[in-house]
Amino acid sequence: MLRIENLTKRYGSKAAVEGLSLHIAPGEIYGFIGPNGAGKTTTIKSCCGILRFDEGEIYIDGKSIKTDPLACKRELAYIPDEPDMYEFLSGIKYLNFVADIFGVSKNEREERIHKYADTFELTGDLAQPISAYSHGMKQKLAVIAGLIHSPKLIIMDEPFVGLDPIATHKLRTIMREHCDNGGAIFFSTHVLEVAEKLCDSVAILRQGRLVASGTMEQVRGDASLEEVFLELEERDV
């Protein structure tokens, strides 16, 4: 579903990501972990076609993000770490805007918006301007906006930040269901316990380079993900 081949992205002379290769298969929840500044967000933004990269290739469902970005973007949803949305719109107007851009039919958008807004208990607030939303409400809205067009691949940057425990649980359930239905999820997180429980596979990034990747069992072995992560950090230090 998502294939990253030898990705390199530089800011000036500094390489934020160097020679990164990953493969996320359909049905897989893939965790992406690493310390701050490791290059996770740069990788994610490159996968979503937000950032142009210097070397390598990224394929979404077999299509290149470089040569066919629009087709790729139609297949994916990006949920950013900071929900900087259009605060001058109401929640429902924002969701309608996203649905219009993705060409979602009237019936499908009504059904999905109401279904997910009810799930996240946001329905009553949809007429409110986004500027009046809390961080958690914005995060919920960003998740609903990402699900409106029923994407094959969902890419999320720190999706659990700002969500209350109930919303976190509901999002995890949605993520699992999405992958059980043949979709794929690639997300970054600092919450290693969540990654350990939720992910089928995981990649650890440090200073723009991949230091470990594979299924959860392959990466952690008999230890916990936290122990593996700390050990890799200490080894590099």
């Binding site: 309608n96 805007f97 009237k106 409110q128």
Partner: peptide, 18 residues
């Protein structure tokens, strides 16, 4: 606070939406 009431949604083109 304005409470949202479920109603029919309007559909438009991508260009119109922007």
């Amino acid at each position: 606070k304005v409470v949202y009431r479920k109603r029919e949604m309007k559909v438009s083109s991508a260009k119109g939406a922007i």
